[in-house]
Design a protein around this nucleic acid. Structure first.
Lengths: 359, 359
DNA sequence: TAAAGTACCGAAACCGATTTCGTAAAGGCA
DNA sequence: TGCCTTTACGAAATCGGTTTCGGTACTTTA
């Protein structure tokens, strides 16, 4: 401790009275109201004084106190995020990037991120309500959009701005909503196309529970890929409701045990695709030769495994940045329906896909 | 969208005027000041009216607006957390649990968590400063404590309350500081003891960069374990500066290539221990028979691998909960030095450790 | 019974901003 | 010159709370 105190080279002065609006005003020989309006770009302030105020503010290091502003304006310049602790796969390793993206983007605009967590759906509504009635946040970012997302419905009824990570409602118009999404459908389609180019004709698909939008979208992408290649869709090759590595393995066994097994499988998520590696080891198959795999997510384990998993990676950092930007824009007045963004996933070639083996 | 709007079963009324202190006051036939003091346990309010006010507040669903309180009190009831995006291993999969723990514990006390991120050390100080001068947080939780932690030094110079995840300053007294830590040292010591009981005599150690406190502490635990078993400490068996799986593999090779290789290795982190699995596969060694491993962290991959890694698991959720509680207590007036907590890591037996093979 | 406490509550100032309203000076037009 | 707009700013109200300061009414003490 002594060592620490001694190494301190920073400003020692503890109090360091913060400069208030009134300090600025007296320093300039103006009143608070004039200074405030100057800083907030009111039209009835002359350009001269506006600049003079701005300069002095910067010089004196003035920063308005958000709490005080909030009392009057009702806005706290804070984005809200509710983590769902009871979610199936717990966000995985992307959370840090995602949060980093949000906070960085929010920070440059002078906003902050307030997070809370819920352990059940009922709890989630209570959490959101608390954040709202305590005026801790101005709007929400909702990750993991689900079909008929209860959070979206809830917030919409309260007229609270929010933005979704993932489109809402499969097949339904999501008019009036703001969202950011990665084109999982397009990725699956491209994945199929890539396999077709390699020579595959029987291509399976393994996806998660249909309650998730992205599951449906990716499945459709798979089907679209087949259609574009003029391959008939065989329902037997399509398995849904798979959410982890073990279940991914079960699905792989089921597909490989078919009378006419697929030579390649498209997995909707990396985590489940890892199950196929386990099955391959069990049966002495070589991934990338005896069985081709393409998945989606870009989890780090996919790069560590042998052979590395070919996958469509999502940029969680970018997602966070854009979601924050979209929400802030909405809070500033842009109509929600104008704030939607669909980006492509990035193909990350590994060694898990190759030409089919001639049997 | 139509579907969504139709399914809404919640309160449709959009405005839902929030009840203010003055509403409560008029409803009770009292003044704002009396009601406020009643709610804040002032001594000059009779127990009768205090209870009456409390009851009515609960009935009317009154919740004070933190921003308004903050203007007067200077406290926003928010904890701050700065994520370091440039950190070596990016928090891993524990972040969700950790954040969940913090927010849950904070929530029951009526506090919230505000997070920001930094991409460099300079950026970190700027971020902290911004949060502080904007009055967005009252105190900080600092994860990943380092020797002579710059954040601790900085905050201490500003007299801002904070609590550390991990003790500060290896070997130096951290008087006046508040922290929570998992006893990594004790875990390493117990790990060595466990291996000794299994019959091992040559036990190696692989740890991370010495700049981290926990690295030093775990190394010391290893040495202590050897001393307790009356085994001489062989510097050749101790490798530091290892931070990921690949480097863990390099370390394993180095140890196994020694003239007298160890029969067991204690890794300071699970992630690096996975590297030993790779080396074992390379050389045809069976983990748990030809080479025993014990590590620390409890990452999910350790449980998936074959054989499962024997490790000392940390409960990130609990850490978050306790850190929040400690910081809140400090902000409520408890002296920082009374707020320290050391908990034991939980042994999670796998199959990676067994009796040494007789060669 | 008068003086001195004590218990309890109201009135008003205050925190740090924003916003409405009023008004003096400058400019435009006849 | 006289009247009407603008232009640009000050005065004061306001947001939703907290806190200081008095001032009753009721006890206690002398």
């Amino acid at each position: 401790m002594e060592e620490i105190r001694d190494t301190v080279s920073h400003d020692q002065e503890a109090p360091a009275r913060r400069v208030r609006l009134s300090d600025l005003a007296t320093a300039l020989g103006l009143t608070k109201s004039t200074v405030s309006r100057a800083l907030n770009d009111y039209a009835d302030i002359s350009p001269d004084t506006r600049d003079r105020v701005r300069k002095m503010a910067a010089q004196m290091g003035y920063a308005p106190m958000p709490s005080a502003q909030a009392v009057r304006t009702g806005r706290v310049r804070a984005l809200g995020l509710v983590l769902e602790l009871d979610a199936p796969d717990r966000y995985g390793p992307f959370l840090a990037d995602f949060l980093g993206g949000i906070t960085q983007a929010a920070s440059v605009e002078g906003w902050t991120l307030t997070i809370a967590s819920s352990t059940s759906r009922a709890d989630m509504e209570a959490t959101i309500t608390r954040l709202l009635q305590e005026h801790k946040v101005d709007g929400f970012i909702l990750p993991r959009t689900r079909v008929q997302d209860p959070r979206a419905i809830f917030l919409q009824s309260k007229r609270v701005p929010f933005v979704l990570f993932g489109r809402v409602g499969y097949g339904q118009r999501d008019a009036g909503l703001s969202w950011y999404d990665v084109d999982g459908s397009g990725a699956m389609r491209d994945g199929v196309a890539r396999l077709v180019r390699l020579g595959h004709k029987r291509i399976g698909f393994v996806g998660p529970c249909e309650a998730f939008n992205f599951a449906m979208l990716r499945r459709d992408g798979y089907r679209e890929g087949l259609a574009l290649a003029q391959i008939a869709h065989d329902p037997a090759l399509e398995i849904m409701g798979v959410s982890d590595r073990a279940e991914g393995a079960v699905a792989a066994r089921a597909l490989l045990d078919l009378p006419e097994p697929p030579t390649a499988i498209v997995y909707a998520t990396d985590a489940t695709a890892l199950g196929a590696y386990d099955v391959a080891r069990e049966r002495g198959l070589t991934i990338g030769r005896d069985l081709s795999l393409i998945a989606y997510d870009g989890i780090p384990e996919g790069r560590m495994i042998e052979p590395p998993l070919t996958t469509f990676a999502v940029d969680s950092r970018h997602a966070g940045e854009r979601l924050a930007a979209l929400l802030i824009a909405q809070l500033r007045g842009t109509p929600a329906e104008e704030l939607t963004e669909l980006v492509a996933a990035q193909l990350q070639p590994g060694g898990s896909d190759g030409p089919p083996r001639m049997t």
